[in-house]
């Protein structure tokens, strides 16, 4: 479907790549004064795309099924809810890795920044943490859409954007005002970005303490959001909203 859908192509390939290009040039500009600051910006954007694409795949993948009135067909097939969500999550992770690879290579040649220079261990830990966070966000938003219906469908592509400034994706955490820093630490992505930037600034060194906090928070988020998703899914089946979403 991906190759035949201009909307999906734009959202998960063109839009993220455009962001990388824009922030790539910004990083070139900033790097003239402070190379680490410049690299922090493009590094943050490359990684942010992972969260965006995984979350988008989970929520928009289901919305496409609702829009085409095909979701009911899937749910009256012998398909477990966990299999359905897992399929969308794995598909999102795969798409995000492809986009990361393409945009990573692009940034090496065009913006003089090599994301792979942080090393495989740090990059892998970062991607695992972001994938879990994006999964948690995705199923929470999807649960809300199931429960409240298509009137809140815009959350599928907009809600994740609220986390970009709060999680300090493009700058160090201490840039945020103290009050927002207290909010930011509630999100595992904040620690993951801090850990990734630490690896960037220290030749791939792994900040185990930051990754550990991020991972612990991610587990809480994943378990909590999964439970909330199941609750909202059942609420939507109880209220009849699940079936009405396709009417």
């Amino acid at each position: 479907m991906l190759r035949r859908s201009g909307e999906v192509m734009a959202d998960i390939i063109i839009f993220p790549l455009t962001n990388v290009v824009v922030f790539g040039f910004l990083s070139l500009y900033l790097s003239a004064e402070n190379q680490l600051a410049g690299h922090t910006v493009i590094f943050g954007m490359l990684l942010w795309n992972v969260i965006w694409i995984v979350e988008y795949s989970i929520t928009l993948g289901s919305l496409w099924n609702i829009w085409t009135r095909n979701l009911t067909n899937l749910f009256i097939a012998p398909l477990a809810l966990s299999e359905y969500i897992l399929a969308h999550t794995l598909s999102g992770i795969l798409k995000s890795l492809i986009v990361l690879l393409v945009s990573g290579i692009l940034s090496v040649y065009v913006f003089d920044f090599n994301i792979f220079s942080v090393g495989f261990p740090a990059l892998a830990l970062t991607l695992i943490n972001f994938s879990i966070f994006a999964y948690a966000l995705g199923i929470f938003i999807l649960g809300m859409i199931f429960w409240f219906g298509l009137r809140i469908q815009a959350a599928a592509w907009s809600a994740v954007g609220l986390f970009q400034p709060l999680c300090a994706a493009l700058y160090p955490l201490d840039v945020l005002p103290v009050l927002l820093q207290k909010v930011a630490v509630l999100f595992p992505a904040t620690y993951t970005f801090e850990a990734a930037r630490f690896a960037l600034a220290n030749d791939g060194a792994i900040a185990w303490n930051l990754f550990s906090i991020a991972f612990a928070e991610n587990i809480v988020y994943a378990v909590g959001c999964t439970a909330l998703f199941v609750l909202m899914y059942n609420k939507s089946r109880d209220s009849g909203q699940f079936a009405r979403n396709e009417v």
């Binding site: 496409w64 085409t68 009135r69 095909n70 009911t72 009256i76 097939a77 012998p78 396709e246």
Partner: peptide
């Protein structure tokens, strides 16, 4: 649930399949 769904199916004028495949 799964065992039952494996042996039944449904067709409705109000449900369609994916348009772009």
């Amino acid at each position: 649930r799964t065992e039952c769904l494996q042996r039944i199916n449904a067709a409705s004028a109000f449900n369609t399949l994916m348009g772009k495949i």
